[in-house]
Amino acid sequence: MSILVTGGDGYIGWPTALRIATRTDERVVVVDNFARRGWVEEVGSTSAVPIASIDERLDAAREVHGCSNLSLVEGDLTERSFVDQLLQVHEPSAIVHTAAQPSAPYSQINGERANYTQHNNMQATRNLLWGLEEHDMTDTHFIETTTTGVYGAPEFPIPEGGAVMEHDGERDDVPFPAMAGSWYHLTKSHDAANMRLAHKQFDIPISDVRTAITYGTETEETRADDRLKTRFDFDYYFGVVAHRFAAQAVAGYPLTVYGKGEQRKPFVSLEDAVEGLARLALQDPDERPDDLTVYNQVTRPIAIVEIAETIQEAAAAHDLDVDVTHVENPRDEDEEHEMEMANDRYMALIDEQRADFADGMADVLETLTRYQDTITAHEDRFLPDALKDDAEE
């Protein structure tokens, strides 16, 4: 028996695999085809933090944390024959499925990338779910990181997964309607529906972990050795807004807030996201839910202007004089949106928040100032148009 972590070379996948391996004697198998490294290179960017090869990472995990139970299988989850062999050989008790093309902007570049994103993401999930059914492994706990982006931005509070529909005097619980805003986010909406169908038809225990915008550079395990660091993307395509703001600060540019900046987005620290996934993977089969459970993996929503001001304050500790400026919002969005989202089930899973936003941003700036040359060399990959015009003058 083993625990599989798909996308185990990625930003969330690698530290999750590392945490699980430090807490169990069970075999933990990293599964990846290393496509993420290629996608980032394709858009002309790179990880700010140098990423060790997977062999170096595994060596460091054994040397530093004693993880002799951590290993790699390289392959493409969209290939049915590979998935079949993977499941038959390793007979997983749990699968933590973090493998995906995760960028909404990348999926929006053109039709080719939209098609690639949808095929890559949904085919991998379908292959795993059907593989569990066809190889008589329906007791395997299937845990997928979907996204809070499947909810869109409704004007009412978002429940943890479900909703109540009322019509003609009758009421029933129904899945929350998919309101995705990109070709990438729609893949996770489809995955959520496919997981629900797989649970209904195959009775697979499933945890749909709707992960919020994730920030941070370190977890408890990755701090121990530079070879264990996870990747850190700061470009427009693969870097989240907080990380792009931090890159602007390190490169000496003001932080550009669109419009009022009071629109709130759901966030979770890397440390808290990894903790939630690890706890699900390590649940005793007799104690875990045997149904489909939705977790809103979010600690709190944060306003864009608060992100900027928090980074401005943290930057002062590194002698960075950072301004916050408001520019015209090119997006059609409510600039005062509250983004209320229930997270009781997720918070009960992790017991308590392990890292807050201010500490996370201090960590990010501590990391990025070490690699300032890399940031400035790729500034054209993260500067908004308003700052690009200034840079060219």
Rank of each mutant, 00 (worst) to 15 (best):
G7R: 01
Y11R: 08
I12W: 03
T16Y: 04
T16K: 13
T22M: 01
R27M: 12
V28D: 00
V29H: 00
V31T: 00
D32K: 02
N33I: 09
R36M: 15
V49F: 05
A52T: 11
A52D: 05
D55N: 11
A61H: 14
C67G: 13
S68R: 15
V73Y: 06
E74P: 03
S81W: 08
F82V: 06
L87M: 10
L87R: 09
V89H: 12
V89Y: 13
H90I: 04
S93C: 05
A94F: 10
V96S: 14
H97R: 04
P102D: 08
A104F: 08
N110T: 04
A114S: 15
N115M: 06
T117S: 10
N121K: 10
Q123M: 14
A124Y: 06
N127L: 06
N127K: 13
W130P: 02
H135C: 02
T138W: 07
T140A: 09
T140E: 07
E144Y: 02
E144G: 07
T148M: 03
E155S: 12
F156P: 08
I158W: 04
P159I: 04
V164N: 03
G169P: 08
D172C: 10
V174C: 14
V174S: 03
P175I: 12
P177Y: 07
P177I: 12
G181P: 01
G181H: 09
S182A: 13
W183S: 10
D191F: 02
M195I: 07
L197D: 06
F202T: 12
F202S: 12
A212N: 07
Y215V: 02
Y215R: 04
Y215F: 05
T217H: 05
T219C: 06
E221W: 13
R227A: 15
T230M: 11
F232K: 03
F238C: 05
R244D: 03
Q248F: 12
P254C: 09
V257T: 06
Y258E: 09
Y258F: 14
E262Y: 13
E262K: 09
E262C: 05
V268H: 14
D272K: 14
A281L: 09
L282P: 08
D284K: 01
D286R: 12
R288A: 01
D291L: 11
V294G: 00
V298F: 02
V298R: 03
R300P: 03
A303M: 06
I311A: 05
E313F: 07
A315T: 07
H318W: 04
P330H: 12
E336I: 05
E338D: 13
M339C: 07
E340F: 02
A342K: 14
A348F: 02
A355P: 01
A358D: 15
D359K: 11
L365Q: 09
T367E: 15
T367G: 13
T367W: 08
L368H: 10
Q372G: 02
A386K: 08
L387G: 12
L387K: 14
D389Y: 06
